[in-house]
Design a protein around this nucleic acid. Structure first.
Lengths: 152, 152
DNA sequence: CCAAGGTGGTTGAAGGTTCAAATATTCCCG
DNA sequence: CGGGAATATTTGAACCTTCAACCACCTTGG
């Protein structure tokens, strides 16, 4: 039988949840307005950009960004239409598909990144300072691992 | 001209963003599976539940949960269909509409709450402890205010 | 007092997400 | 090796969100 949250904990949770929501909304709106993409699209492009060869298997990309396979498939369809991503069959597993950033995709994500990360700096690091930001990130990372049910 | 993020800051940001995403995904999935509602639906019901008279003007509810007016309107339509919320014209401003939780709505949100808040306790407070959770909430709250462009 | 502009709210269509089902391939066990 | 179970991905339909346009009412300046 679980212990319910105290009044103080409840209050903390509301602030935590509200803060996350507002931050994500602001970032989403900016990417939408300035780069014509969703925050989710950006995550996909950005993961691919950091990957070796700028390619990833669909499944591992989906895990990385926390998408269902189906959602990723639809999203990659759209970005393939836009010319940002291309698909190739995976050489080692004939079931698999690899998604790769195109030249255009690289350009698009690099352009979006600078404005995006600048807003992150303004809303996160400038507001709470580097030290607290680090502690907050560490805590959220642990929470995220618990939420994903990761080991260790 | 903005200073770009350092490697350390980037790393912190990735962990912060990933943690938020995983946590919100987990909470959303649980509400969907166990209560048949979206995390967003839950936020709406939960705000109404805490409001005096269990009623709020559409606009102020929208601001509270960070929805566009249109999104809130559609969402309230659905929940009105479900019998969880009712609408009345606002007595003091004939343009306005008030949304109110129905008896059924109260029951539904109270049922959903206990499982939901229990998961919050497990994923947040049990993982990082009360003290760090408080500090994290405080930081995220400040960040959220900055993101909403709030004064003070 | 009335007209222009602002505010509160809804609607419809277009596009995005979810869920279940389908397909193709690989893995593994007897 | 043969066949069932598991894995990788896609598709289509139903549902949700966004965006732009709209109506109704309030407010304010001339």
């Amino acid at each position: 039988m679980p212990t319910p949250l105290s009044r103080t904990e409840l209050r903390a949770w509301f602030r935590l949840a509200g803060g996350m929501r507002s931050l994500l909304n602001a970032l989403d709106r900016q990417l939408r307005d300035e780069a014509g993409m969703t925050h989710d699209d950006y995550e996909i492009l950005s993961r691919l950009h950091r990957a070796p060869e700028r390619s990833l298997r669909m499944t591992s990309l989906a895990r990385d960004v926390g998408f269902s396979p189906s959602r990723l498939s639809h999203a990659v369809n759209r970005m393939e239409m836009a010319g940002w991503i291309s698909r190739q069959p995976c050489p080692t597993d004939r079931r698999g598909t690899e998604a790769t950033l195109t030249e255009l995709g690289v350009k698009v994500v690099e352009d979006a990144s600078s404005a995006h990360l600048d807003l992150v700096r303004k809303l996160v690091f400038d507001v709470v300072g580097g030290e607290r930001a680090g502690a907050t990130a560490e805590a959220m990372d642990e929470i995220g691992r618990a939420a994903r049910g990761d080991k260790n």
